[in-house]
Design a protein around this nucleic acid. Structure first.
Length: 639
RNA sequence: GCUGGCGUAGCUCAGUCGGUAGAGCAGCUGAUUUGUAAUCAGCGGGUCGUAGGUUCAAAUCCUAUCGCCAGCUCCA
């Protein structure tokens, strides 16, 4: 007699052991059909798992996050099976589940081509239609190693040899394909109905560039076609929002061969850049920051003292003149410490919050450059807070507050916070780390935010908080950072005089909210899909004449609005108004004002919003007032 | 940096088996003076990323190189 408890706490009794699948069909035929796996006492198992004693059992379907994972994992196996069928000499390696899908790495004598992918995909579909049962077996380790070596799968044999001795070696067989896998897997391949191979790429064996390059095939898999379509549509939407595409349409910036990774900001893009800079400036001055500016070209000796030369020298651009070697600064901190070091500082001077819109160059590997998101020349909204150890927590709290204010102004409400803790290799004793980590944790708790620790991810000189935001497509971007640093101020001999008149080393907090303006602008463009809210839009209002005889009045209106700080432009071209409206609508200009005889006579403008709605005929002052109000609300007020 | 793909007019792209370059949009000129998402007509525009090579002949094939794209690695 055994008792099975369901997730709703109801129980069922059975006289004899039964499998998860049998249990599911006892509950209902529909559930049995949908059962991908089972969860027995919290552990994920195959539907063929035999229930021999009392247990808490849940039937896992595609709706269950675990079920989706099983589905994707099984689809990765299906991919491997299809590849082995078409290309028997390919060796299988690993095939894990990733966000939204899976991949499988293969060793193969030639590169897979897009044509191969099409073939592999249809082979997968055929194998799925065949509804091959997926069977699990546990083998002795030696037998498994021998088996895989015999069939020429040296990577699999290597994986098994590296598994912990206690780990049972389970193999899964579907048709004539046998793969090492922890499982669980779907009962048969017929469950794998909604998948698509998406990408083809190289990847190193075990992620190490010293190892041989394997070929990775990426795919996505979902419980049904509808969910797959939703996902594919989202990819398409992301493509439409690509900031490189929108940057071209809206004439924001460009790149060219002669300056890889360096942005040519056009008038519109630069206006956006300056708007963001003004915004940050106003936020900083409210919070008692000072703004400074430091050299971009600094002698090698300072970078040697700071430690950058040794650690990051190869990522720095250098230039030589009069037998001196200069480096273009990759970060601002050493220079800020030079400013701090001018004159003797007292504990009474602290904290000093020193900000700079620092122009930094880093020689990023060519393959990592990506539009505005990853550049070689960037401008950070950087600041360094010099404070006493006791001030760390309150400074951290103040920065978190600032950062939340900033992110909310841009419509990012969904944040992910991580506290990166001490790494293996680190400077400073454990007592110092305890104190530092504790201060940051308390600051996070004080803000009432959920956060996760990430052990071992801290910098060698101190722990840090990483602030990531989710954009409107649910993509995660790391932007803000707050890093405690005990090492650099000491290396560069920063001191202050404490209450007891002893010399002390200040703590430095490196901090940024945007990260870099370039990257943040890229994120904003994609977040808003190019439809920047009025307060950010480089061109806020387009004033259009209907015929030439309205041009003078249109110019007058434009000047009047510009005087009130509105970014207005004129379109006096000899075109029909419908043509002009279409063009500016496609460029997402937030407001358009039409000027014809009636407006000239009444001293008004006919205002039209981007969504096509008619805002009516307004006097110039009314129009200005309306726009200014919307700018001040930063688009947070409902229309 | 590594692997693979790509690079043709200002933009988006076509160009078959190697035979001497094409469309739409944009631009220019002219007509049109127009009321809320495309007025009409005509015209100009390319060292096919760059440098070599093969060939009677190269956008097309080969090599190198630069850049871009996807992923890997990296990301102070």
């Amino acid at each position: 007699m055994l008792t099975i408890t369901l997730p709703d706490n109801s129980t069922r009794e059975y006289a004899a052991p039964l499998t998860v699948a049998e249990f599911a069909s006892d509950i209902g035929a529909g559930l049995a059909k949908a059962a991908l796996a089972g969860r027995v006492n919290g552990k994920l198992v195959d539907t063929s798992y035999r229930l021999e004693s009392d247990a808490a059992v849940a039937i896992v379907t595609g709706k269950d996050p675990d079920g989706l994972e099983v589905l994707r994992h099984s689809t990765a196996h299906l991919l491997a099976q299809a590849v082995k069928k078409l290309f028997p000499s390919a060796q299988v390696t690993i095939g894990p589940v990733i966000e939204n899908g899976f991949y499988y790495d293969f060793a193969f004598e030639r590169s897979f081509t897009p044509d191969d992918i099409v073939q592999i995909e249809s082979a997968m579909a055929a194998l799925a239609t065949a509804q091959l049962p997926v069977k699990r077996e546990v083998w002795p380790r030696e037998k498994a190693v021998e088996f895989f070596l015999n069939i020429g799968e040296k990577y699999k044999a290597e994986i098994i040899s590296d598994l912990p001795a206690a780990e049972p070696i389970s193999l899964y067989q579907q048709g004539d394909f046998i793969d090492l896998c922890r499982g669980p897997h779907v009962p048969h391949t017929g469950f794998l109905q909604a998948f698509k191979l998406t990408k083809l790429a190289g990847a190193y064996w075990r992620g190490d560039p010293k190892n041989e390059m394997l070929q990775r095939i990426y795919g996505t898999a979902w419980p049904d076609q509808k969910a797959l379509k939703v996902y594919l549509d989202r990819l398409e939407e992301a493509e439409k929002r690509d900031h490189r595409r929108i940057g071209k349409i809206q004439d924001l910036f460009h790149f060219q061969e002669e300056a890889p990774g360096n942005v040519f900001w056009h008038e519109n893009g630069w206006k956006l850049f300056l708007t963001l800079q003004d915004y940050i400036r106003s936020q900083l001055s409210e919070r008692d920051y000072i703004e400074v500016n430091t050299p971009e070209l600094v002698d090698r000796s300072l970078w040697e003292k700071s430690g950058h030369w040794e650690k990051f020298g190869k990522d720095m651009f250098v230039t030589e003149t009069e037998q001196r070697l200069y480096a273009i600064k990759p970060m601002n901190c050493p220079c800020h410490i030079q400013i701090f070091n001018q004159g003797l500082k007292s504990y009474r001077d602290l904290p000093i919050r020193m900000a700079e819109f620092g122009s930094c160059h880093r020689n990023e590997a060519s393959g990592t450059l990506h539009g505005l998101m990853r550049v070689r020349h960037m401008t950070q909204d950087d600041a360094h807070i010099f404070c006493t150890p006791d001030q760390v927590q309150s400074e951290a709290s103040a920065f978190i507050d600032l950062l939340l204010t900033i992110y909310r102004d841009f419509g990012f409400d969904n944040l992910i916070l991580k506290l990166a803790l001490r790494p293996e290799q680190r400077f400073g004793d454990d007592a110092l780390w305890d104190k530092a980590e504790d201060a940051l944790a308390k600051a996070l708790d004080g803000a009432g935010l959920a956060w996760q620790p990430s052990p071992g991810e801290g910098a060698f000189y101190g722990p840090k908080i990483e602030f990531s935001l989710r954009d409107s497509l649910d993509r995660v971007w790391q932007c803000g950072t707050l890093q405690l640093d005990y090492v650099l101020p000491e290396r560069l001999q920063a001191v202050y005089i404490a209450e007891d008149s002893s010399k002390q080393t200040p703590v430095v907090l490196h901090r940024a909210a945007f990260g870099s303006f370039e990257r943040f602008i890229g994120i904003l463009i994609e977040h808003y899909a190019g439809k920047l809210p009025l307060w950010l839009a480089p061109v806020q209002l387009m004033i259009m004449s209907i015929t030439d005889r309205h041009a003078d009045y249109a110019r007058f209106v434009c000047m009047a609005l510009k005087k009130q700080g509105i970014r207005a432009r004129l379109d006096l071209r000899n075109e029909k108004v419908g043509f002009k409206i279409r063009e500016h609508t496609l460029r997402y200009i937030p407001y358009q004002a039409v000027i014809g005889d009636q407006e000239v006579q009444t001293g008004t403008v006919a205002l039209r919003a981007l969504d096509g709605s008619d805002c009516g005929r307004l006097t110039i002052d009314e129009c200005a007032k309306r726009l200014i109000q919307e700018v001040q609300s930063k688009g947070k007020r409902q229309k």
